Amino acid sequence: MRFLHTSDWHIGRTFHGYSTLEALSGVLDAIPSIVREHHVDAVLVAGDVFDSTTPSGAALEVLTAAIRAIRAAGAVVVLSSGNHDSAARLGFQSEWAAFGGVHVRAVAGAATLQEPVLLTDEHGEVAVYGIPYLEPLLLRGSLPEGTPSTQAGVLEVAMDAVRTDAAARGVRSLVLAHCFAGASLAEAEGLERDITAGGLDIVPTSTFEGVDYAALGHIHGRQTLTDSIRYSGAPLHFTFGEGGKPRGGWLVDVGAGGLERVTWVDLPVPREMTTLRGTLDELLASPAHAPAEQHWVRAVLTDDVRPLDSMRRLQQRFPYCALIEFAPSSPEQHAAAGYAARVSAGRSDTDLVDGFLAFVRRGNGLSDDERDLVTKQLAQLGAES
């Protein structure tokens, strides 16, 4: 039996103010072709189906179209909730959806883990357990006494229930979960906003032992923790930090004896992301940057003085320039001194203005023309007072 492991669709997320619905819809349109080409039996979505607990009507339409196309291609769909999803909204009418081959696991509870999605091949049944996103604080009263109020604690309880049920059924098993598992802070930082008291709530990989495959979500780049515990990452680049990382999913083959192989399959990238560095004039003039003219662009400007109207000017050449950062090439003068120390030595009002501009411009004070203008204006103010 073959599964396609995906996660973190984040339908409805914006990218620096731009909607991603059209781009994501185009990427999800490629999944039915993968289902047909690779004879996929079930498509798995391991959490964060939506980016918001209150998805828009347009976001609901994107999900509906994607699921309809996947089902038409012949695959069952199994979705579990993530921390961005509303369990109630995602799980609404899930009982009826299951009759159409769309299985949603969003509501936490023993019944969820004791009623896996059962699929059958020539070797018997395969049980797919979708663990909804488990918020430790909300589940505190229903956990066994002594369970730590952490993701690791609640997921260990959930996995104990999964292992017990799978053993009783005598079936091969897969589990979907949404968490930071075995991920370092550097890997997780900037990719998600699930921060707990004391830092990120890390789940050990040992939590997922005892099943044939763990399809994880929450981290937006693909990762292999073990042969049988993996992240697929998001289908779309949602930040410049993710640019260049592959987008796709894992094809998971389960044979008579359990997991047999896992291979990667790419999804299309609708628009590449590029970071350009240089002065504004260099970025606007250099022919070397021509390939980036239709990319999403982050421009790191190295001008010593911030250029005026830089975004508008950049977008004349790079229509999809979405972010500007400033990193002047010249070192800041008197780096050890604070602003008050820099201006305290001023012997005139003009010198004070010069000191202020040297601070905000990273060492570049008044130009000759500016000094002349400031001197004249200060003299005029002095005459009027």
Rank of each mutant, 00 (worst) to 15 (best):
A65H: 04
G278E: 14
P291H: 02
A127N: 13
E384K: 03
A161S: 02
A290G: 06
I202T: 13
T14S: 14
G278Y: 15
L24P: 01
R169D: 05
T164V: 00
T274K: 12
E242Q: 04
L191V: 06
S344E: 13
L280S: 12
L366E: 05
C321A: 14
E22D: 15
T112N: 15
A88K: 11
V107P: 00
G74T: 04
V128E: 06
D201H: 00
S329A: 13
V252T: 05
H218R: 00
P319L: 01
Y129T: 07
A214D: 14
S86I: 01
P116V: 02
T54R: 12
V269P: 08
L366G: 05
G12D: 08
G153K: 01
L284H: 13
G182F: 10
E135V: 03
A110W: 09
E125Q: 13
Q151V: 00
A292N: 08
D304W: 06
G100H: 05
L251Y: 01
A337N: 09
V126P: 06
A214I: 01
I202N: 13
T147G: 06
L283T: 13
V305K: 04
N364K: 08
Y339I: 10
R261T: 15
A87R: 05
A88F: 15
R193D: 12
E293I: 10
E95L: 06
E242K: 01
L251Q: 06
L373H: 06
A358F: 01
S86W: 03
A59M: 05
S348D: 13
T196F: 11
V171M: 00
E156L: 00
T164D: 14
G190W: 04
R317S: 02
A337C: 11
Q380F: 15
I131C: 07
S206F: 02
R317I: 03
A75I: 07
I219E: 04
L113V: 09
L134K: 07
A152V: 01
V175T: 09
V374R: 02
L21E: 11
W264H: 07
D85E: 14
A161P: 01
